[in-house]
């Protein structure tokens, strides 16, 4: 009984945090995932010296400067040691890749540079190296407004993502939209259903005890509804990423986010 009362109070506090955020956001009713978290998890994300995702930023910075491939070129040797050339880049990915004639997400773009510009072995999706580099690059977009979708060439990808978003999936026969559009802010078990904005990625998820990508986060929702997850890097994930970024257009990037 006492336990239940405690839980009710604490859950109400969570709701209040999200409501306070909505008020301070002026006209925009959209709320990033961080607005749905407890005060403690919010504080962890806000404080760079406590945010465990910053360890991956640091790791990515080392990789950025380290020579790789047969010519021993570092990312820094082409893009600059301070990586200022990467400012805002994550806020407009997935982007249209004219060479391949299709959309590419940030991790894919970095993997491409590692392979094609450095001649290094293709880094594995969700592998440490690619995650750290992606987190480092995306951190340079912190505070930048999401602009994916301004490029009209992405329209078909975003549309494909929207169709996936609205499709009933898995044994539970639920669509992403049913949870994240229709029931955001509601409780699912003990979790609050967030609006699923991709603005904090890669995130440090307490559940993973590690950094992870948006694709991994979506994978969790897919297995949650008992659907067969796509292979990492699959066009379906890139389409969902593009759709979610377009849906979050104008919101601020906050990489590295911390999530429960």
């Amino acid at each position: 009984m006492r336990r239940a009362a405690l839980a009710a109070v604490a859950l109400a506090a969570l709701g209040a945090a999200a409501a306070a955020w909505a008020q301070s956001a002026g006209g925009d009713a959209r709320r990033p995932g961080s607005a749905f978290m407890s005060r403690e998890t919010q504080a962890m994300q806000r404080d760079d010296k406590a945010n465990p995702g910053m360890l991956s930023v640091l790791e990515g910075e080392e990789l950025w400067k380290a020579p790789a491939g047969p010519a021993g070129r570092s990312c820094a040797s082409c893009h600059g040691a301070d990586a200022a050339s990467m400012d805002g880049v994550a806020a407009r990915h997935p982007a249209f890749d004219p060479a391949r004639g299709e959309a590419i997400d940030l991790a894919g773009r970095i993997a491409q540079c590692r392979e094609e510009s450095q001649g290094a072995p293709a880094p594995r999706r969700e592998g440490r190296e690619l995650l750290a580099l992606t987190t480092f690059v995306a951190h340079r977009s912190r505070g930048a407004r999401v602009s994916t979708g301004e490029d009209a060439r992405l329209a078909p990808t975003i549309e494909a993502g929207r169709r996936l978003w609205q499709a009933r999936l898995g044994q539970l026969n639920l669509s992403c939209a049913q949870c994240h559009d229709d029931n955001a802010g509601m409780k699912l078990g003990a979790s609050t259903i967030p609006e699923a904005h991709p603005t904090g990625y890669p995130i440090y998820r307490l559940e993973w005890q590690d950094i992870g990508s948006l694709q991994r986060r979506i994978r969790g929702c897919l297995t949650g509804v008992r659907a067969e997850p796509f292979a990492y890097g699959a066009p379906e994930y890139v389409a969902l990423e593009a759709f979610l970024m377009d849906r979050a257009r104008g919101m601020e990037m906050e990489t590295p986010g911390v999530r429960p």
Partner: peptide
């Protein structure tokens, strides 16, 4: 080598 972040 692992990374460390200290704040002083």
């Amino acid at each position: 080598m692992s990374r460390a972040l200290v704040s002083v």
